[in-house]
Computed example of a mutant assay.
Amino acid sequence: MTAMLSLAVAPWQRPPVLLRHADVPHYAASTMKVAVLAAVHRSGLDPDREVPVVNRFPSAAGGTYAHARAEDGDPEPWARLGGTAPLGWLATRMVSHSSNLATSLCQSAVGHAAVAEVWRRAGASAATGSPRGIEDAAARAAGIDNTVTARDLIRLLASLEPEVLARLEHNAHAVDLAAGLPPGTRLASKNGWVDGVRHSAAVVHPPDAPPYALAVCYTGPLANGQDTGDPAARLLARLSARVWACRHRLAEMPT
């Protein structure tokens, strides 16, 4: 497998000051859940609306797909299978514990067009989009895939409402970029990983410097697909630590 590392760093709400292969598309993994979260927020749907918790969804390639319980790291939505759950609660679990089942339920509630509109509004390139569900294997086999670039993840974060960013501050997976920061550092982040892929995007709020956004996408053999003990996760943590060390200079760097 050929390795590709992409990186984008930007003072918050400003153009990037550091780019490395930032426009190369990668499989999105769970970073696409940020766009679904924004679509739920902008839909106007009542967050207390009860959503039937099912495990059968329309495939972007036709037919249906279902999630594998063993592949989902969040057991809480599965405990409600056959019942209902509030839409807002599902959206929170989607990003705080990266629930795949909650993601498809939220995506079904708002529709794929609403998620596409989030990327369009963010100014994402043609290389980025989330046209299928997170585990829609038939669609992926048909060439319908979710992709991101490091630059577009920065654009997406910059387009989010404060309420949406606040949800990302409750990410329970304090690995990747978070692991390269001093303990207790405030950040709004979302990561994603599968075998061969490790990504993370965050808005970091140092107590002694202006906030900045950082996105790193890695595709290659270092990524073992595990939530912990992943060499690629340690690589992202080292990159995060290096950017942190330059935090005072970021706002002064030319764009």
Rank of each mutant, 00 (worst) to 15 (best):
T219S: 15
A178P: 05
N171L: 02
A166C: 03
L177T: 04
L222P: 06
S159H: 15
Y212W: 14
G143P: 00
R132W: 03
R155S: 01
D208I: 04
I154T: 02
S130H: 13
V203I: 12
R140I: 11
A127F: 07
G196C: 14
V164Q: 06
Y212A: 01
D136Q: 12
E169V: 02
C217Y: 13
A172R: 09
G143D: 08
H205K: 08
L181W: 01
R167C: 14
T128H: 02
G196H: 11
S189G: 07
P182C: 03
P211T: 02
L181K: 00
N171K: 04
V204K: 04
T147K: 13
D145K: 10
A172L: 11
G129E: 04
P206C: 10
A223W: 06
A127T: 10
A166S: 05
R120M: 09
V194D: 15
N191G: 15
S189V: 02
Y218H: 13
H173T: 09
A166P: 04
N191K: 10
K190Y: 05
L156D: 00
L222A: 12
R121N: 14
Y218D: 04
R167Q: 14
P207F: 01
S125Y: 05
A122K: 02
R167G: 07
T228R: 13
A215M: 13
A139Y: 03
S200K: 12
A215V: 14
R151F: 00
V204C: 08
Q226G: 13
G143H: 04
L160E: 01
G133E: 11
V175S: 11
W119C: 05
R151W: 00
Y212C: 00
A179S: 07
G129D: 02
E163G: 12
V175R: 13
D176F: 15
A138T: 15
N224T: 15
E169I: 02
N224G: 14
V175A: 11
G143C: 02
A174D: 12
A223G: 11
Q226N: 14
D176T: 10
A142T: 06
